[in-house]
């Protein structure tokens, strides 16, 4: 009951040309008694590249999963102005049902550390599955779209291969193409290079660089690659214990961190490199 009452504090929609593409308002995520995220506030502008860094268990993955895979226990998440975690009923926000969630999540794409390609489908099949089954595209249209994207990520030559015959870097590039085939407004990347051999990391980061610089896609990226995050992000958020401990432009956060925990984390990462 308390939660329902609280909801009246949140707007039904976010309006205006400056409204964020993604907005977390006071979002809480619990697993049982464990509070993983506590009152998170985070706005991501359209076309912005936000990197999320922080120690293991600080809640980085959870931030992305709330947009894509999980329900939340408090607060509201908006995507492109409309509530995602909730829906409007009779002028009030109520928790979203699964249909609303599914519709809202069609606007979001996600790539995972372990690719999660469908092993029984070819690269092309992987990229056509969502457009055909979910968006209702014809096979022909979906194929053209998939081929364009496989071309873009440099995987067009391998379009008829199954994932088992692709290297990690190649699989991840197909996974990015698969996510983009849904024409998402926001792309979520969760440590997409962490499972890769060092020599193929570059081929994936190059694709991400292209998405940022050429296509101006809105991206939220969890990463342990500080150099890449510094290089490519508009903003970096340092997570600690389920909160944003410090955030800012990469130049500021990496070269001049204000908080002690940020300093400790960055120097620990640097010495590990």
């Amino acid at each position: 009951m308390k939660d329902l009452h609280d909801l009246s504090r949140y707007p039904l929609r976010l309006e205006g040309p400056d409204r964020p593409m993604v907005s977390f308002r006071n979002v809480t995520k619990r697993y049982g008694d464990l509070v993983v995220l506590d009152g998170l506030n985070l706005d991501v502008a359209e076309g912005e590249m936000v990197s999320i860094i922080g120690p293991s268990g600080s809640g980085k993955t959870t931030v992305l999963r709330m947009l894509m895979l999980e329900r939340i226990q408090g607060g509201v998440i908006y995507v492109d102005g409309a509530p995602l975690s909730h829906m409007e009923r009779g002028g009030k926000l109520v928790p979203a049902n699964s249909r609303h969630l599914r519709a809202g999540r069609e606007q979001i794409g996600m790539c995972f550390q372990h690719f999660n390609l469908f092993p029984h489908m070819t690269a092309l099949g992987n990229c056509m599955e969502g457009p055909v089954q979910v968006l209702g595209l014809s096979k022909q249209a979906a194929r053209e779209r998939a081929e364009d994207l496989l071309e873009m990520v440099g995987m067009i030559d391998k379009r008829d291969e199954h994932p088992a015959r692709l290297s990690g870097g190649q699989q991840q590039r197909v996974a990015i193409a698969r996510a983009l085939a849904m024409r998402p407004k926001v792309l979520l990347l969760d440590e997409v290079t962490s499972a890769l051999d060092p020599e193929v990391i570059g081929e994936v980061t190059e694709v991400i660089r292209k998405l940022v610089q050429k296509y101006r896609l809105t991206i939220m990226m969890v990463t342990h690659q500080m150099g890449f995050a510094a290089d490519i992000s508009d903003r970096v958020c340092f997570f600690y214990d389920g909160r944003i401990e410090e955030e800012g432009a990469p130049a500021d956060l990496f070269s001049n961190p204000q908080k002690e925990r940020t300093q400790q984390f960055l120097s620990a990462v640097k010495s590990a490199d």
Binding site: M68, L69, L117, F118, G130, V134
Partner: peptide
């Protein structure tokens, strides 16, 4: 589990 998550990420229906 990742296969289920990939399905959710693509908004596939339960049936699909």
């Amino acid at each position: 589990k990742g296969q289920w998550e990939a399905c959710t990420a693509l908004s596939l229906s339960t049936r699909d």
